[in-house]
Amino acid sequence: MDNNHIHLTLNIWRQETPSSKGFFEEFKQDVSPDSSLLEILDEINNRLEAEGKRPIAFESDCREGICGTCGLVVNGNPHGPLPKTATCQLHMRNFNDGETLFIEPFRATAFPIIKDLIVDRSGFDKIQQAGGFVSFNAGSAPDANAILIPKKIADLALDAAECIGCGACVAACKNSSAMLFVSAKVSQFAILPQGQPERYERVQAMVKVMDENLFGSCTNTYACEAECPKGISVSNIARMNREYIGAKFKTEELVD
């Protein structure tokens, strides 16, 4: 492994409270190409702490690209410039010596900043709580092989279900739309037989809460798909449109 250090200038967003005014603070850093971006932030924080200065608040957990906790915008790209990569998997060898980086939080009205690079993504949970499930109680399930699911259907459902809920789609969208995120869950259950009984109720409930939580609408720029660390397809958005329009016109409920 190459251990030649490279020199970077990092401009990192600092914002002490949700209401205070933020600014970019500049850090010059020699980094190992084998380190991840988050490890560089760890290094800076260690230095700041040793100097008695306030460290940069940022979130991460699994550092394996699956928990969806980390999420930074690097030079305008959510999760940085590499496709299908979460911030924690972004290694410094992807940058050039002397490069300047601007690191800032996901920006959207629906994701208010809590501190520095940490944002509040609880809107996502609210949407899931509205209908991102199959309603049945533990203990009542039939034998697992009683429900036959063609391999292709299971694979397609998993393609959608792989969403890690990081919010990069919202961050990438010029409208801060959550359509890719919501449609991934709607699609998983619209595709699978288990989701059929609540198919129409689910999509209506989830879209309603999505709209209430100040996410914008989709103008089909597909920036979400390009920035998604799991490569979730925008065909899910089309499916959700179809499901929603179908739900409104086919069902017999007159109100809501």
Binding site: N75, G76, F102, A110, K174, N175, L214, S217, T221, A223
Partner: peptide, 21 residues
């Protein structure tokens, strides 16, 4: 107008040409 309200603050670097047309 609604979409502007949903996303009032832009990033320091505009990388939109990398992810959309």
């Amino acid at each position: 107008y609604e979409n502007k309200k949903a996303n009032p603050q832009k990033y320091a670097v505009n990388a939109s040409r990398e992810n959309s047309d």
